[in-house]
Design a protein around this nucleic acid. Sequence first.
RNA 1: GGAGAAAUGGCAGAGCGGUCGAAUGCGGCAGUCUUGAAAACUGUUGAGGGUCACACCUCCGGGGGUUCGAAUCCCUCUUUCUCCGCCA
Length: 423
Amino acid sequence: MLQVSNIRAHKEAYIKALKKRNFEGESILNQILQLDEDRRSTQTKLDETLAEANQLSKEIGLLFKTGEHQKATILKERSAQLKDASKELSDGLSEIVSNLEKLLYTIPNVPNEIVPAGTSEEDNEEIYNEGDIPVLAEGSLPHWELAKKYDIIDFELGNKVTGAGFPIYKGKGARLQRALITYFLDKAAESGYNEYQLPLMVNEASGFGTGQLPDKEGQMYHVTEDDLYLIPTAEVPLTNMFRGDMLQENDLPIACTGYTPCFRREAGSYGAHVRGLNRLHQFDKVELVRIEKPENSYAALDGMVDHIKNLLQELKLPYRILKLCGGDLGFTSALTYDFEVFSTAQDRWLEISSVSNFETFQTNRLKLRYKDRDGNKQLLHTLNGSALALPRVLAGILENYQTPEGIIIPEVLIKYTGFDRID
RNA sequence: GGAGAAAUGGCAGAGCGGUCGAAUGCGGCAGUCUUGAAAACUGUUGAGGGUCACACCUCCGGGGGUUCGAAUCCCUCUUUCUCCGCCA
């Protein structure tokens, strides 16, 4: 959520930047500024009325003490008038504030100046790539065929137990998953991230804090009986641990990580591109979250990119990094880099990580601030990134490491899997 | 799930329906003293809105009510603790 004070100060720049994500902001920003004016003037009137009522109450109290009941009764009438007036003003104020917030919720984050304009993923900029795309032997298979051939992932069984999009990993498939999780967590610890084990359901306030609510309820599974939401990513519990906090300068930066299953409804996604592990309702992911002072957040974003690069180098998977264009940028993000692994047998790139700086967009909702050396309170910046999302990494490993003798396990994983080949 | 008790500032802990945004202690910050530190002493120290700055307004778990006036009374929800039940 943008800050009204910033909208006032940078209106023209914001309108221009929002155009990069094809958001026409001029009229809505003007409405917001107008509502904010109304808010303040109504608040002032209300304050004056309440001040008079407070004063009056004190006088009435004194009159009762001195036994001047008649005078007190006269003042009580005035007090009743003030009460009516303040009721009206405060109702009006609530309505203005609620309208103001409704508008604020509809505005996406302002893209960073280096974000390219664009309308879809076609316009994302490839900024880096690494790793050779292997030339596979004749008869090489897509990962869902390999999964079946080696009996390591059972899609039908998951379909039977739960439904489409809930695969069951079996045997070496399950162990490979567990190996990847441990490997990713160990690497995160090496980079200074503190590990957490998190709730998989969150309350409404948390969904709101990170921007899943309101409006994007459809992405999350909702447990209506208890009004809880299954997390679509560990970002939600990780970031919301700090909701409402006032941190000290020496608490910063905060770097935390957690492995969780992630649940996504993905309503309306069907077709060939969601086959196999490409898109699931439940998948595993190790997530990184950082809370940074504003002046450090972009350096921290680069650090996260380096961390993920290192994972892919060690796994020896061919990958590329994209800088998302305005049209493809998530609602809450100011700058996002996507990592994609090449799926050789499918001949397409699969997104396996998304790393973003949200600047103050989340912290403004979370009321997450710190006190700087001079005692000034400032909103912090939040960042997060997947490191990594398991299913597509698994897909990449299966497809890129397939040989006629079976699937070779990447070197770095062997100490975690305890086997070096799936056959 | 049932019965009872509680929820106050960073923490601990007072608080009669009317100068209570809230005693006191600890902690934090600043100063005096000291070569330095500790101790001692003095001062200061919640958040949000608003203002050039004051004034002023709001907040004592959340919401509602009674009253001229509520941290204080009533209703309700949530959470925590104790006891009982159930349970990996």
